[in-house]
């Protein structure tokens, strides 16, 4: 009971005694676990490596700087590939995920069994990282841009699908009732009462994922799925750190631009 009767009246506290004891115990347990982990990590660290780290960082920076500016002439094509992978991958994912979201949302699903199947697809897609998807797809289609597009799409379906079906579930019920009452068919009810409500969030989610995918598309080249990651892998293998440095600069620029575009677009929608 948060309210206690004391001799001078009623006393109110936020938590009752048992809850307070539990909270205190929770904090104590958390502190002990943190200390134990700390101990374990300290015991397993090779301290000579840790002590060496600043020197290694300095050497690394020396190798990267100055970047090989002339290398950029060979980067335009991979850069374009990266952008293509991210954009087409997102587009493919959107085309698949948005219909799925209506099957997965509690208020629009035609049948609970279909809902669970769709949720399964979404979970499988989400539980595998783009890089792993890329590994799998490269093994099937061979290396290249196509593998990248498919890998990006497979990962994004779950992401977009999940956020989209949650926004479908959050739509208000009154317009649905009103459109149903006019004698509209199921599809008409969806397109007139639910779709207008979720369009802004669908657009926002897609742009947000495109922004993430640009960053993912720079990485999946490491396993052969096209884009600028291929060059990064090659330069590092050849120990051309100055060229790798140039790639870092280019990726940084690309990410900045995509962030700016995505922020601008989302602002325009909301």
């Amino acid at each position: 009971m948060p309210v206690r009767i004391a001799n001078n009246g009623k006393i109110w506290q936020r938590y009752d005694t048992t809850t307070r004891l539990r909270l205190w115990g929770g904090w104590l347990g958390g502190t002990v676990i943190t200390l134990i982990c700390w101990q374990l990590i300290a015991n397993r660290t090779r301290w000579e490596f840790a002590a060496d780290a600043p020197r290694q960082l300095a050497i690394f920076l020396q190798r990267v700087f100055p970047p090989d500016w002339s290398y950029i002439n060979q980067l335009w094509q991979p850069l374009w590939d990266t952008l293509t992978i991210a954009t087409l991958g997102t587009l493919l994912a959107v085309i698949i995920a948005l219909p799925l979201s209506f099957l997965a949302a509690r208020n629009t699903t035609p049948h609970p069994v279909i809902r669970y199947l769709t949720l399964l697809i979404i979970v499988v897609s989400r539980s595998v990282n783009s890089l792993i998807w890329a590994l799998i797809i490269v093994a099937i289609t061979g290396p290249g841009v196509l593998a990248g597009i498919i890998a990006i799409a497979l990962r994004s379906i779950g992401f977009i699908g999940k956020l989209a079906f949650e926004s479908v579930e959050e739509t208000s019920r009154e317009p649905v009732e009103a459109i149903t009452a006019t004698g509209a068919s199921r599809l008409q009810v969806l397109s007139y009462s639910i779709l207008p409500q979720v369009m802004p969030s669908f657009a926002g989610i897609s742009i947000f994922r495109w922004d993430i995918n640009i960053r993912e598309a720079t990485v999946i080249g490491l396993v052969g799925a096209g884009g600028i990651g291929l060059n990064l892998n090659a330069t590092v293998n050849l120990l051309r750190w100055d060229q790798a440095g140039m790639i870092f600069v280019v990726i940084f620029g690309l990410v900045l631009i995509s962030e700016a575009i995505s922020a601008r677009v989302r602002q325009a929608i909301i």
Binding site: P175, I179, A181, S185
Partner: peptide
């Protein structure tokens, strides 16, 4: 659905589709 066309309904919170 056919008979619903002959029955109009008006709601407390208007139930319009806000973005249309």
């Amino acid at each position: 659905r056919r008979i619903r066309r002959r029955i109009g309904m008006i709601f407390q919170e208007y139930a319009l589709v806000e973005r249309l």
